[in-house]
């Protein structure tokens, strides 16, 4: 009987440790995923696509702000860790924001309009 109770306590303790370890691990991953990066989303505001992106980014990053893709200029990236330049993903004739080769802020470009931006900058990530 005593052995059985002792075994039960050991099992309970082990399970508790496992649960704590799992919780710690999950929390760690979540903290890392929302590690305080400041994100600027430059998109076609007031569209479903922009809302889709912003809702998603809000889930994963602590600070997400938006600006209009059509009037984006390099100086708007100041104060942000990463800028996301997004038009509609597919338009081959999308306008390209006026950024120069001096622009060196961490940036994600998206889809065909993104490749066009890269082409304009003569980057390897460009369309051709």
């Amino acid at each position: 009987m005593r052995n059985c109770a002792l075994r039960t306590r050991i099992v309970v303790a082990a399970l508790t440790l496992c649960i704590l370890a799992a919780l710690t691990s999950t929390a760690g991953a979540q903290n890392e995923a929302s590690s305080g990066l400041r994100i600027l989303y430059a998109g076609l505001l007031d569209t479903d696509r922009a809302k889709d992106f912003v809702d998603f980014l809000d889930e994963h990053f602590e600070k997400v702000e938006t600006t209009d893709y059509l009037t984006f200029t390099a100086d708007k990236s100041a104060g942000f860790d990463v800028t996301i330049l997004d038009h509609d993903g597919v338009d081959t004739r999308a306008p390209r924001p006026s950024i120069s080769r001096q622009y060196s802020r961490a940036t994600v470009t998206l889809g065909v309009p993104g490749a066009d931006i890269c082409s304009r900058l003569s980057l390897k990530t460009g369309y051709l």
Partner: peptide, 20 residues
């Protein structure tokens, strides 16, 4: 051919869809 790639400070995500 490169669907997602980085050149310098710019990462090009060549896919078109929004997160949903």
């Amino acid at each position: 051919a490169v669907g997602v790639g980085r050149h310098g400070n710019i990462l090009q995500w060549g896919y078109s869809a929004p997160p949903s």
